[in-house]
């Protein structure tokens, strides 16, 4: 069994924290894992992505082949679309619905969202609004992870909650609680 996830967003949105939580959960569950990250120049307001591969069998390539991603998990709707060639047959797109506009030629929002909604399996939500509503504005990425939980077949929601506890423990109890709250809001919000 395997789950290949393409994580996407804009530099600074916190996709590496999502990867860290998934990595922790996978390690605790004894799964094989490969996670290719982008470091360096591309972090600064540019598009960022990370390939996360989880499997019960050894994994070869660090990169997900085209048509191989079971899930595109994106902090930003246009960034979700950027990786469509990687989405597998029957794969899901879980994304924030709120555009992050820091370029002059950003596409029209209605057309962007209708292209997104035309895909077979799409879950989208304004994760920033949800996180703000919870008074945990820095935890929008965990709202997104909560939304994605049903599509990460190889790990259970409880595996992910436990990983959130472990990863954020060093930042204090308040941060752990905020992130769990955000995760639950995302998870419940789609049901």
């Amino acid at each position: 069994m395997k789950t290949d996830i393409k994580l996407a967003g804009v530099g600074g949105q916190g996709i590496l924290s999502i990867a860290t939580v998934l990595g922790e959960a996978a390690t605790a569950a004894g799964l094989y894992l490969k996670q290719a990250e982008v470091h360096g120049m591309s972090q600064r307001g540019g598009d960022v992505q990370s390939d996360l591969r989880l499997s019960t069998e050894p994994i070869f390539s660090d990169l997900i082949p085209q048509g191989g991603a079971d899930l595109i998990l994106s902090m930003e709707p246009m960034e979700a679309l950027r990786y469509l060639p990687y989405l597998a047959e029957g794969g899901a797109v879980v994304t924030s619905s709120k555009p992050f506009v820091n370029i002059p030629d950003y596409p029209a929002e209605t057309e962007l969202l209708s292209e997104l909604d035309a895909l077979p399996k799409v879950v989208r939500m304004d994760i920033e609004a949800v996180a703000k509503g919870l008074l945990a504005p820095r935890s929008a990425n965990m709202v997104l992870l909560g939304m994605a939980a049903p599509h990460i077949g190889i790990l259970s929601p409880e595996d992910l909650r436990q990983a959130i506890r472990t990863v954020f423990a060093r930042k204090g109890e308040k941060v752990v609680e905020d992130n769990l709250k955000a995760f639950d809001a995302g998870h419940e919000g789609i049901q």
Partner: peptide, 19 residues
Amino acid sequence: AGQVHLPARNLAPRPPQLC
């Protein structure tokens, strides 16, 4: 080739920027 979905239409490059 494994590709299932064509590249999206509503897409623009997002180069890195000075903070």
